[in-house]
């Protein structure tokens, strides 16, 4: 799959799932939006978003690996700043590309 197409598709679908999980209008789901402080996500919402994305593409998101990729020894403020919609899109895109390559 063309990487640009994959990124566009992932952006569109992830945005929709976050919107549906958090009941937030799509225009507010920008790449820079922080899941916790901007979109008011809670732990159970993150679980929900993860499951929706896994279901959409039949992929497995390793929560531990995803958290590790945010960086080590972050303060709460740094974690919040890095855990954005854009981060999820960037993390998921190669997983989707790989899954579609196998299909």
């Amino acid at each position: 799959m063309n990487p640009t197409l994959a990124a566009d598709l992932v952006r569109e679908v992830v945005t929709r799932h976050i919107s549906e999980a958090l009941l937030v209008p799509i225009p507010q789901i920008t790449p820079a939006a922080r899941l916790f402080s901007d979109l008011k996500a809670e732990s159970i919402d993150i679980v929900d978003i993860r499951f929706r994305i896994e279901e959409e593409w039949k992929i497995k998101i390793d929560q531990q690996a995803m958290l590790e990729s945010l960086g080590a020894n972050l303060s709460a403020e740094q974690l919040d700043a890095r855990f954005t919609v854009g981060f999820i899109i960037e993390y998921v895109t190669p997983l989707v590309t790989a899954a579609r390559g196998r299909a």
């Binding site: 531990q64 590790e68 960086g71 972050l74």
Partner: peptide
Amino acid sequence: LFAAKEAALKAIAPPPSLAFEW
């Protein structure tokens, strides 16, 4: 159960970026 897991996590107070599984 999920509330208890989250409450336990808060009690443990790990570093914010600690990678964990529920």
